[in-house]
Nucleic acid binder design. Structure first.
Lengths: 358, 358
DNA sequence: TCCAATCGATAAATCGATTTTTCGTTCTTG
DNA sequence: CAAGAACGAAAAATCGATTTATCGATTGGA
């Protein structure tokens, strides 16, 4: 392995050229695989490359093209397993195609989302994978449209008139949850969620409601949502239980809601599934080892990432035609947090409230 | 807001120059804030910039400098809260200084780590924040050294002779855990961990052991570690309990271990803290809402990221001198998973094993 | 033998900025 | 009033690669 001095300037294509006794243009062609180069010269170039440890500067190489070999990825956050593995997948797929992935977190802010997008536009990225904070109608997607950027929208999105979209099939998964809960005999179910404005969350809600009512029209479905953050949701939930409402099952439309529900159950000393059943949309590693294990809808991260990148590169390579909207199907994992109503030892218990624990 | 046609070429500095009736050099100077430009011309430049919606191309702007305004970040994975929020913090700090953060996951592979590093070297990044897979002696750090890259090592690292390092003060935190457990009367404690070769994990182990033995020389400390993945750890743990070993407390040196311990407890029908106490190094959102809440050592992500970036930029700006090794102190959060031995209703219970649940 | 076609490789233009050099004015000052 | 300093801005070089235009040499056919 050719090693060069540490603090020295890196060899450029001209250094390779002079070492090989050819011009820089020839070096470029050899490295690009052009066949109209005399084999002898090609060999000299390869030797010089090896000797100097030369590597193409991707930044300089990208200078001349209108679109650089960079893909931007914008996620609402990096802290969750879902978006974390999404970035990992996207990174691998971009890399496979010789592109560099630049990921940024919008931190659940639409304003920041747009700023990041503008910055990526400055970088002249070839394409963007955007997981919008809210939905496809936000300022970020509008910016992409206005500036003719190529991109794909994922996750909190259903379909768009300008961009391809890929997301989990929330409605189908929710319907399956509904079949499961109704099948177990639940007749009073609470649904909790955030940001009802997001199309997918609405799809999760409607998918559940439609299926549940189709199976049993007499079923009672309560819904608690909060527009902004988790804290209002927590207090709404506290009020709801405080009023004496006793659903036999809770379906949380998102991970944060599952956590809120669990902590509220704890405050009140309720146990799953004896006192109440719980299912959450979105799975996490801890949910299968905690006691009881929490039933969850597993999102197909790999499929979403793969499909998104396929669609994106198709567009990058110039594909035209109307945008497509892909739905990838989820898996519903039954776990111990779900039981039949009235079967547990504590069922029908009163307001055995415990003092707050922290 | 000046809006331009979507599919049109973006305006370059020359477009701005001709619109303003000056040279490109003057535009560059105005935008750089050089004061030797006639105010009238500066105004014309600003007007043209506004009218055309011009923005500097960061890639072209970086071409001339030896180090580009890019910071590379290499993490072992993106799926955990710890590294997820680390990336978020690093991204914000880089952005504040006008740099772009390019994050990549080594996926717990040292080979991949080195490849990514080579790619970042090709990009001529100004600096790298490397969270090594194993420790500071891996091939990645060697590569950085050999090529004279500037960088900071974080997390699974204690100190290095070439790079500044920043990590959580594992030893101090573990000592505090030891004081806590010994204080509660535990006399037989099991420690589980992965990759004992990692300096920090060893520090966690020794920090605990030293403090615990200092407080009570008669204490029994068992250690189960696995070099590679979690599965060997799981089976070792199963064997250990299967042999009839009954520690009253378990201290897990890392998050994955905490999950493994919890699931093994579940298999056996043991409950925290009645049957056994549990403390984990590294905290996660779910640990405070699960039942019982799991005691944990909280790592100072913000401080680590901030300190790492401070040190890195100091080096990027040319600071010399011997490398420093920073330790940021952790917080130990007591939660319900910890109790006194022998106080629970099930204590001393036999091998009440349940069948595997999945 | 001479002109044309072909092949291989080089010179030069290009990408979009920054930085150094050069140059023409204007302002001082002896 | 002329020489020199000071100032402002344009021209040109630069970064490292790619691509187009150009050029020389060889080969072919007429």
């Amino acid at each position: 392995m050719a090693q060069q001095e540490a603090r020295q300037r890196r060899p450029s294509i001209h250094d390779v050229a002079s070492h090989a006794g050819v011009s820089a243009a020839t070096v470029s062609k050899v490295l690009a695989g052009v066949t109209t180069v005399k084999p002898e010269n090609a060999q000299r170039v390869f030797d010089a490359v090896e000797r100097l440890g030369y590597r193409v500067d991707p930044l300089a190489s990208d200078m001349r093209r209108a679109k650089r070999r960079i893909i931007g990825a914008i996620m609402p956050e990096f802290e969750s397993e879902f978006f974390g593995s999404m970035v990992t997948e996207l990174e691998g797929l971009a890399e496979q195609r010789g592109y560099t992935l630049v990921a940024a977190s919008s931190r659940e802010s639409e304003a920041r989302e747009k700023e990041i997008l503008a910055r990526m536009h400055d970088w002249r990225v070839a394409g963007v994978v955007l997981a919008p904070v809210r939905n496809e109608h936000g300022p970020a997607a509008a910016f992409m449209k206005a500036h003719g950027m190529t991109g794909v929208l994922i996750d909190r999105v259903l379909s768009d008139d300008a961009f391809d979209t890929v997301s989990a099939d929330s409605a189908a998964a929710s319907a399956e949850v509904a079949r499961m809960l109704v099948g177990k005999g639940h007749k009073h179910i609470l649904i909790i969620g955030l940001a009802e404005g997001a199309a997918t969350v609405r799809a999760r809600l409607e998918g559940f409601r439609t299926q549940a009512l189709a199976l049993d029209p007499s079923i009672r479905i309560d819904v608690i949502t909060s527009e902004v953050s988790v804290e209002p949701l927590r207090s709404s939930l506290r009020d709801y239980f405080g009023r004496g409402e006793r659903p036999t099952a809770v379906y949380s439309l998102l991970l944060k809601g599952t956590l809120v529900a669990l902590s509220e159950f704890r405050r009140r000393g309720w146990h799953c599934p004896d006192d109440i059943s719980l299912v959450g949309f979105d799975d996490a590693e801890w949910m299968q080892v905690t006691w009881p294990a929490i039933a969850a809808v597993v999102q197909p991260v790999r499929q979403i990432a793969g499909e998104a990148m396929d669609l994106l590169f198709r567009r990058v390579e110039g594909a035209v035609g109307p945008p497509v909207a892909r739905l990838e199907s989820c898996q519903v994992l039954m776990r111990e947090s779900v039981g039949s109503p009235g079967s547990g030892p504590h069922s029908g218990g009163g307001d055995r409230q415990q003092p707050p624990l922290s």
